[in-house]
């Protein structure tokens, strides 16, 4: 039952699997994002309150969702590296961090641009916005901590520990709109039983969410290959893999 898990700890297997999966993930992402952008910008009806400004949701919500998903991936992979001492866990965590940080920044920038016409301000110290900003600082902290050690193994362990501790921020971000009074709107898509959007607005959003997830998978595969090469560059299999 655990064979697949142990195979994931083999660097050559991870390197080859990532190379095989990447084109499919990237192709699927391109199709889903292209459909989501065209349908969301040109065919979805304007919102009855927000007008066409609501279309920012098609890039804001997937970016915000991905910022949390990438963090959870990073923390779980780092935790696996810490507990089972699987080096590939640390490699996945290292590959996930810059992707997640960039999408956290995207969520903050697009949210700020959406907030100006809707709330009258680019920024407010609102629970959702503040906790998302803390997420960006956590990403930066994890990346800085990893590169702060001369010994890469110690850097991996320290970064993984910070990532695992920082997991406490993930439910705070998700439930901030429920636990506190917030300018930010509540969940719309997460209510799968009764989403608060009509299908004409919801389908392009779901396509964008799906497309961003596939894109994350594709970039993670590419970055993972780089991380594996960096960590295994003394190994004989790397010589064959790069044809040196």
């Amino acid at each position: 039952m655990w064979t697949w898990f142990y195979r994931l700890s083999s660097p050559p297997y991870v390197y080859r699997t990532a190379a095989a999966c990447m084109p499919w993930l990237l192709g699927g992402a391109a199709l889903a994002i292209a459909y989501g952008v065209v349908d969301g910008l040109a065919f979805a009806p304007p919102d009855y309150q927000q007008g066409d400004a609501f279309r920012i949701i098609y890039v804001h919500a997937p970016s915000a969702w991905l910022s949390l998903f990438a963090y959870m991936t990073m923390a779980v992979a780092g935790g696996i590296g810490l507990i089972w001492r699987i080096k590939m866990g640390h490699a996945v965590a290292a590959a996930s961090a810059p992707i997640g940080a960039s999408f956290t920044l995207a969520a903050l920038v697009t949210g700020s641009l959406w907030g100006r016409p809707m709330w009258g301000t680019y920024w407010a110290w609102d629970p959702r916005l503040t906790s998302e900003l803390i997420l960006l600082f956590l990403y930066v902290g994890v990346m800085a901590l990893r590169s702060a050690f001369d010994d890469p193994n110690r850097g991996d362990r320290a970064a993984a520990l910070l990532a695992v501790v920082g997991m406490v921020n993930v439910p705070i971000i998700h439930f901030s709109v429920v636990w506190w009074n917030s300018l930010h709107q509540g969940a719309t898509v997460a209510k799968l039983g009764k989403p608060e959007m009509p299908g004409s607005m919801l389908w392009p959003l779901l396509a964008m969410l799906f497309g961003f997830m596939l894109f994350y998978g594709a970039v993670l595969c590419i970055r993972l290959r780089g991380e594996v090469l960096n960590r295994e560059r003394q190994s004989a299999w790397v010589r064959e893999a790069i044809g040196s």
């Binding site: 066409d52 400004a53 920038v109 697009t110 016409p117």
Partner: peptide
Amino acid sequence: MGGYARFVWPC
């Protein structure tokens, strides 16, 4: 974009 172009397109 219904007058919101300067917010939608930069996003």
